[in-house]
Nucleic acid binder design. Sequence first.
DNA 1: TATGAATGAGTGTTCATTCAT
DNA 2: AATGAATGAACACTCATTCAT
Lengths: 203, 203, 203, 203
Amino acid sequence: MPGKRETAETRKLQIISAAELVLLEVGIERFTVDQVIEKAGIGKGTVYKYYRNKDQMLVDLVVKALELLLTGFQEVTEEKEHHLDKIKALIQSCYAYYQTYPKYFELISYMERPEFDIDEANYLAVSHRLQAFTHNLVLEGQQKGHINPSLDTAMSHYILWACCVAVVEFVEAKKKLLKDHHEIDRHAMVDTFAEVFTQGMGV
Amino acid sequence: MPGKRETAETRKLQIISAAELVLLEVGIERFTVDQVIEKAGIGKGTVYKYYRNKDQMLVDLVVKALELLLTGFQEVTEEKEHHLDKIKALIQSCYAYYQTYPKYFELISYMERPEFDIDEANYLAVSHRLQAFTHNLVLEGQQKGHINPSLDTAMSHYILWACCVAVVEFVEAKKKLLKDHHEIDRHAMVDTFAEVFTQGMGV
Amino acid sequence: MPGKRETAETRKLQIISAAELVLLEVGIERFTVDQVIEKAGIGKGTVYKYYRNKDQMLVDLVVKALELLLTGFQEVTEEKEHHLDKIKALIQSCYAYYQTYPKYFELISYMERPEFDIDEANYLAVSHRLQAFTHNLVLEGQQKGHINPSLDTAMSHYILWACCVAVVEFVEAKKKLLKDHHEIDRHAMVDTFAEVFTQGMGV
Amino acid sequence: MPGKRETAETRKLQIISAAELVLLEVGIERFTVDQVIEKAGIGKGTVYKYYRNKDQMLVDLVVKALELLLTGFQEVTEEKEHHLDKIKALIQSCYAYYQTYPKYFELISYMERPEFDIDEANYLAVSHRLQAFTHNLVLEGQQKGHINPSLDTAMSHYILWACCVAVVEFVEAKKKLLKDHHEIDRHAMVDTFAEVFTQGMGV
DNA sequence: TATGAATGAGTGTTCATTCAT
DNA sequence: AATGAATGAACACTCATTCAT
C-alpha cells in the first residue's frame, strides 16, 4: 500500500518533470499535453489519471516556479544587512530570475489571470510563503528603523511584489522602444527603479 | 445574398463595436472572429474586407483603449498643482481604469508582447503620446523642483508607467489572497503604493 | 451604337490586359479576380458583365498565350530550309517559350485539363491555326521528301505538338533530379530530344 | 466519443482507401480532407494522427500510382525481345495506364510540380526505381545494338519518360479537336508516336 | 451600365479530452 | 492501473460570385 502510494508519487513527479522540460522549451503559449506525454514516455490517459486537466498540471508547474523565485529572494536578501538593501536586492533578483527563466515568469503571469482562480493547497501554500517572506522583510525593516513605520506592513509587501513584477514585464515589453534610447541599458533601469522604490519606503 | 449596403465608415464602426462587445465579454484570450461576426450580424468575408486579419482588429481596439487611458491621465493630472500629486493621481487613475475596463487592460498587456511588434501608425501615435505625456510629467516636475533632478528623466517615465501596470495587475491577481485580509481594501493599497512611489521620486 | 460596341471591346481589352499582368506576376495557381480588378481599376461587377465567370477570362488569356506561341513557331521555322530542321527549331522554340513565359505555359497546361472542355470560338480558332501550322509543316516535309511519307500526316502533327509539351514539362519537373547529373544541361537535353525525334520522322 | 479501435495498419489502409476513392472521384484539384473523412467515416483528427498533413496523404497515393505504373511497364516489356519493341510497348502501356486511371496520372503530374519537392523515402524509392528501369532499358538496348550508341544514356531515359507523359496528356487534352477527325483513333496515334520515337532512337 | 460591398461555403490544421480495451 | 486511438469543435482566413444601388 505505501508502495503504491510511492508509485503514484513517482508518476506525478515523472509527469511534472516532463511538463517542466516542455515549458522551458516552448513556453506556456505552445505548451501541449501531447508534448508532455512524449517527453515522459507515458500514455495520454495516464496524465488524466493524475491531473484532472491541463490546467492542474500548470498549477503544479507554477508552484515549482514560485518556489524557485522565493529561494532566490531568500538567498540574495541574506547577504545584505540593511533592509533597504535587502529590498533593492530582491527587486534586482526578480529581474535576474526573469532573465534566467523567462518561460517560468511567463507562466506565473499566465496563471495569475483572473479566470484561473486557483484553489489548490500547494499553490496557496507557496503563495503564502512568498507573502510571508515579503511581509517579514518589511516588518523587520520597520522594527530596525530602516523602513517608514507609518507604512501599513501588510500593504507594503504587496506593493513590493507588484513592483518586482512590473519592472520586469515593462522593461521587456518596451524592449522595442528602448532601442531608440539604447543608451539606457536595462540593468541601469532596474537599479534606478529599485533606488526610487527603496527611497520611498525609507524613513 | 449580399446584405445591406452601408457606408464604409458605418460598417467599420459596426464591426469594431461588435469586436469591442466581444472583447469586453470574453476577454482577449477567447476573442474570436466568429464571435465578432455573430455579434455584428454580418458575413465572415465582410470582416476581412475591413481588416486584413484578426490582429488588425485588435490594433484598432487597443488604440481605443490607450486613448481612453491617456484621456483619463490628462484629466486627473490637470486637477493637481504639485507634480508629485499629479503622479499620485496618475497611478490611481490607472487602477480606476482597470476596474472599469479590465478586459481593455488585459488587451493592452497582450498587445505589448514582443511577438506583436505592431507597425501601425495609429498605435505608434497613441503609444508615443502616452510616452510623451509621462516623460513631460517627470521633466516638468524636475524643473519645478518637485522631483529629484538626479533621476534620469527618460528612465523615470518608464518606471512610472511600469508601476501603473504593476499595481493594477498585482492587486487584481492577488484578489484571492486579499480576501484573507479584506480589512485592507484595494483603494487604500493603491494610495499607499502611490505614496511610496512619489516619496521615492521626491527631492 | 458602334460607339458602344467599341466601348465594350475596349472594356474587355482593359480587363484582359490586367488579367495578363496578374497572370505573369503570380501564375495561374494564385490568380484571383480581385487582383484583376485592382490592376484594371474597374469594379468587380463589371468583370462579370463581360465574362460569365473566372474561367472565361482564362480562356481569353490562353488564346493570347497560344497566339504568342504560334508566332514564335512561325518565326523560327521560316529561317530554316530543310523541314527536319524546321521541326527541330520548333521543338527548341517551344522550350524557349517556356523559359520566357513560364506562367503562360502553366496556363496552357492548366486549361488543357479535361474538366475545362472549352467551347469558345477564339480558343478553337487559335487551336486550329496551331494545328494547321504543324500539319502543314509535316505535309510539306513529306512533299519535299524530307519526312517519311508513310507517316499519317494528320497524326504526325499531334505527336509533334505532344513532344513539345513533353520536353518542356519534363525537363522542368525533373530539375531536382537533374541536379544529381548536372553534367547534363537542359539545353543539351532539348537538343538531343529534337535530334531523336527528327531522326524518327526522317526518311 | 472515441470510435472503434482498429490496428494502426487497418486505419491507415482505411484512410488511404477513402483518399483513393475521393481522388478517383473528383481528381487532385478538388481533393479535400473533409471528403476523405466523410468517405472513411472517421473523425477529422484521426486523419492527422496518421498523416502529418494533406500532402503526406498525397505522397502515399502517388507512391501507389507510380508503383502501378512501373508494374505495368515491367509486364509489357518482358513480353518483348527487341529493345525498340520494349520501348514501343512502354509508351503504349503508359497511355493505357492513363485511360484506366486518369486521376492517378493527374496526381503524378501534380506532385511533380517543383513546389512539392517531396522528401519522403517511399516516393524517392519508387521514383528511383522508375528512373532505373528506363535507364536500364536504354542501356541494354545500346549494348545489344538496338539503340543508337551515340545517344547519351542518361539523357535518353529522361526523354523516353517525357514522351510517355506527353503523348498521354496531349492526346487527351485534344480529345475535342480529335472528334473532328475521329477517323483517327487515339490508339493508332499512340502507335504512330511510338513508331516515330523508336525509329529515332534506333541505329 | 457600372459598381463594389457583402457573402459563406470551404480549407487545412490543432489539441484537450474521452473511453474501450 | 495504464493506455493511446479517436474525436470534433474551434480556428483564422480565402475568394468566386451576387445583387441592390
